[in-house]
């Protein structure tokens, strides 16, 4: 299942990168400082097989990728695998922090809103969630930066380093996931709370918190975990805008830079990396399903 996906996605990437105009050797020179010496450009094109027919370039990439070699970026003069791995810890850190914030706040918030459906807590929480989902990350990030770094001076505005640098970007990034998760939790809980067995549980005199946390939550977990899985996939493969706003050195920013610079090997590498991360997250989600709901069996 994964192999056709990988071939399909890398092929689309390859075709797109070859269709958009622009010469990869251009990225070696600063546009401001003039253009590349044609002889040097030709040497580089020959050395890295840029003169080969397109289908051959793609097959070479695929052949090497299967053997674990993602190729070489002449812009960095480094292997692609290394370029991505150097940026992965930052992406992982920011993604996990955002996921922790989203889960730790979003899930209890969603439950509270469901239990008090229609109350002021529900209304204000859901209002907050709509704001959270619809607020542009860019704007929110700058707002937080202005407040905490410029006005209060308690946190660094941007950059990467000690844990204090993580606070603002992870809050910014976590907020929309949190809102999404919270809404999902609320609707899943509401769905379950209306079911007959909950009425039975209540009528046999169980405490409300037992009804909510033991009987209802467990059944609401499946859709929640699905949403978390999707969010985790996004968060762990690099959040371009947040990374850009806070100068966070992650994989998302690398990918966007490399598209602009026509650095095809790195673009392909990042795409493969994204596919791999999503596959991994899906696997974890499947395992969690089986654990949450014993009716779901792994395997065939």
């Amino acid at each position: 299942m994964l192999l056709p996906l990988v071939v399909g996605i890398t092929l689309v990437t390859f075709v797109l990168m070859n269709v958009i105009p622009g010469d990869p050797t251009i990225s070696l020179m600063d546009p401001k400082r003039g253009q590349l010496d044609p002889q040097a450009a030709e040497r580089i094109r020959q050395r890295w097989g840029l003169n080969d027919p397109a289908y051959l370039q793609y097959l070479k990439f695929l052949f090497n990728a299967v053997r674990g070699d993602l190729g070489f970026s002449f812009r960095f003069n480094q292997p692609v695998t290394r370029i991505i791995l150097e940026r992965f810890p930052a992406t992982l850190e920011l993604g996990l922090a955002a996921l922790v914030i989203a889960t730790a706040v979003g899930v209890p918030g969603g439950i509270a809103a469901a239990v008090r459906q229609g109350g002021w807590l529900d209304a204000s929480l859901m209002g907050f969630c709509v704001a959270g989902v619809s607020m542009p990350v860019f704007w929110l990030g700058l707002l937080l930066m202005y407040l905490f770094a410029v006005k209060l001076g308690v946190l660094p505005a941007g950059g990467y380093g000690s844990p204090s640098f993580l606070v603002l970007p992870s809050l910014t990034l976590g907020l929309s996931s949190m809102a999404m998760l919270s809404r999902m939790t609320r609707s899943a809980m509401l769905e379950v709370l209306r079911q007959d067995y909950i009425r039975t549980a209540r009528s046999k005199g169980l405490a409300e918190r037992v009804v909510v946390y033991k009987h209802a939550l467990r059944n609401a977990l499946v859709p929640m975990v699905t949403v978390m899985g999707v969010q985790a996939g996004w968060l762990l493969t690099g959040a371009v805008i947040t990374e850009n706003v806070f100068g966070w050195p992650g994989v998302g920013r690398l990918l966007v830079d490399c598209i602009g610079q026509r650095d095809l090997p790195v673009v392909q590498g990042c795409v493969l990396f994204t596919v791999g991360m999503f596959a991994l997250v899906n696997l974890v989600v499947d395992v969690l399903y089986a654990y949450i709901d014993p009716r779901i069996r792994l395997g065939r």
Partner: peptide
């Protein structure tokens, strides 16, 4: 009856566990 936030129930533990795992990974 009001729902408490500290009930020692499986669902809560699952979520808490997940958050803890993510926290440790972080």
């Amino acid at each position: 009856m009001r729902a408490g936030w500290t009930g020692r129930r499986q669902g809560v533990w699952l979520v808490a566990l997940l958050a803890a795992v993510l926290g440790v990974a972080l």
